[in-house]
Design a protein around this nucleic acid. Sequence first.
RNA 1: GGAGAGGUGGCGGAGUGGUUGAACGCGCCGGUCUCGAAAACCGGUAUGCCCUUCGGGGCAUCGGGGGUUCGAAUCCCCCCCUCUCCGCCA
Length: 468
Amino acid sequence: MIDLKALREDPDRYREGARKKRISVDIDRILVLDERRRAIQHQQDEIRAEQRRLEKEAGPRIGGLMGKLKAAQGEEKARLETEVAELRAKPAALKEKIQALEAEGAEANAALSEVLLTVPQPPDSEVPVGASAEDNIEVRRWNPPHFDPARSFSEQRGFEARSHEELIKALGIVDFERGVKVAGSRSYMLVGDGMRLHNAVLRYAFDFITEKHGFTPVSVPVVVREECMIGTGFFPAGKDQTYLVDEQSRGSAHDLYLTGTGEVGLMARHMEEILDESMLPLKLATVSPCFRREAGAAGRDTAGLYRIHQFDKVEQVVICRADEAESKQWHKAMIGIVEELLQSLELPYRLLQCCTGDLGPKNADMIDIECWMPSRGALDGQGRASGEYGETHSASRLYDFQCRRLNLRYKGESTGGKPVFCHSLNNTVAASPRILIPILEMYQRADGTVEVPRALRPYMGGREVIGG
RNA sequence: GGAGAGGUGGCGGAGUGGUUGAACGCGCCGGUCUCGAAAACCGGUAUGCCCUUCGGGGCAUCGGGGGUUCGAAUCCCCCCCUCUCCGCCA
């Protein structure tokens, strides 16, 4: 949610922000609706004030007259009755006016809040302007010793890389056929060492973020109410990317939605709260299943573990004071944690500064982290992939956009005791099975077996190899 | 699924038709006392929107919506949510 007052004062900033994000939103309509709403409210307030004045003087008079009326007779009685009726009529007339205005105001309000929810957070000025992920800008790369994605896999390793799909098939560690039988396209079932490796990564990542970096472990509901989806900024824009649990047709009051990330539960946990400044920053981490419909992605990345409907993810979230420098610092820190994790897994990666067109409605700034995946990218003459970076992490900085929607505030000395919306940030720690792609492909050996990364061995019962 | 109880300010908890935006307690802030602190005592302490000559003023808000009434936290209707017991169940 953006600040309506700020929009009123500087509508161009929001026009420009939406334009840069390639999101269409009618700012003028908001200004008109806002103007109308305020005019109506103003009228309503004045009439109400008048009504209250009347009611204060008319009440006791009516009481007095009613007393006299009991004793009165004939003309006197008729006169008193008329007077009482007059006294009663005035506020009644005002009430009708108020009700008419109320209806009008409610309409304007509803229309306004609906459009307001679609106004994206303007991107930070330093975010490069661009149309889509194509225009994202590489910030830096990191390579483990003995491997550089700039040179071919075979040159460096002495054999041709197999894709994770080939490796999986040979090792029998993912059952796509039966996954599809059970749950439809983009479904899978991890089996044996596939499931073990998946769990190992998640447990490693979870311990990494909670034990090593002090984030508080929390579990999250993954079936949530709509307020949580709106509050965290995923709705209305992402509604068709989300699975709907239709409970209304069964007589329940509300439908529920499957979350696409643990971020929803972690953030929504604190909605409608006023935190004491001393509690901040809140550093939270969870591991949860994530569900994504992948609507509009038909035909893209259909094979393998890259784009699937359900996966598990360790997620980190920070809720901090409304301080630009502080939240920027947390953004860096959260990215640093992921870099440390990927380096410990010795996976080549790069950081991308996402351009405005790739940000999504809620972000002011976003850094993607991509791991090197030998099986992706353009094919050569022999049908061999050249390898390509593939997105595995995404670090978002949102200022108070999300907390405004969630009505998540804090107060303390620095706010002068007044409640102020918090800032929030989120970043992947590890999402699996997607992260298994670079792990399997980078750790494969000439004989088709896969070495277990050193960091994961404690989580694999000390095993060093999968297969063979 | 069946039966019942309840939703009031940051929290606890009064309040069943008339200056009640709301007693009282806790918490918090300021002051007195003290070398300092605690205790005690005194005072203050909701949010949102709008207007403002920046002193302040107006309106709304007691789960949500509608109704009765000159007037509703209080009465009536509908809805939502939470809790307890029973049933089922990992």
